[in-house]
Amino acid sequence: MKQAIVARVDIGMGTGKLAAQVAHASLSAYEDTGERARREWKGGGQKKVVLKGDGESQLFELADVADREGLPYAVVRDAGHTQLDPGTVTALAVGPGPDNVVDKVTGDLSLL
């Protein structure tokens, strides 16, 4: 079991902002995960990878694939209090889910 978080690299988020957006995405997708999958993922060390995303349209395309694969996912939009305009899409979390299914969605992306 793992979770993949895709963070946009095209909008110039600072390191702290990026870390916060990744955390928001991870937690939001986790909350939409079934209890059995939650236990399995937590028991396995909560494996995560953070990947580079090229833009908003890519994140929505990946979210559609995750939905078709039956994976939990979460798209994060920034509140706009600091570096970004309100509503800016910053990150997507896919999973937790089986490694091979998460890889069907995000396996072609590079590590951040």
Rank of each mutant, 00 (worst) to 15 (best):
T33N: 10
G53K: 09
P98I: 04
L71V: 13
Q58V: 07
Q58N: 01
K2L: 04
R38A: 05
D108Q: 11
L112R: 07
R36E: 15
L27Q: 10
V50M: 05
A4G: 03
V76R: 11
D54F: 14
D103M: 01
G44C: 11
R68E: 15
V6I: 01
I5D: 13
R77E: 14
G97M: 13
G34R: 10
M13Q: 04
L62M: 07
L111C: 05
V49R: 07
T33K: 10
R39G: 01
H24R: 03
G80K: 03
D54N: 15
I5A: 03
T88Q: 06
G87Q: 08
E40A: 11
A66I: 06
A29K: 01
D32C: 09
S57E: 15
Y73R: 06
A91F: 10
A93H: 02
L62P: 06
Q46Y: 03
A7P: 07
L112H: 07
K42H: 13
P98Q: 09
D85N: 08
D64R: 14
S28K: 13
V102I: 05
G55W: 12
K2N: 01
E31D: 11
M1T: 07
V101P: 11
K2F: 02
D78E: 14
G80C: 10
G80Q: 00
T106N: 01
T15A: 14
M1H: 09
K104W: 07
Q46G: 02
K2Q: 00
R38C: 03
V101D: 00
A66R: 08
L111H: 07
N100M: 14
R36G: 13
E35Y: 12
G34H: 05
D54P: 13
K48A: 00
A37K: 13
L51E: 06
A91E: 10
R77M: 06
A19P: 09
G97V: 02
V102G: 05
A37W: 09
M13H: 09
L111W: 01
A4P: 01
G16Q: 06
V105Y: 00
N100L: 15
A37T: 14
Y30R: 05
R8L: 00
M13K: 02
V75N: 06
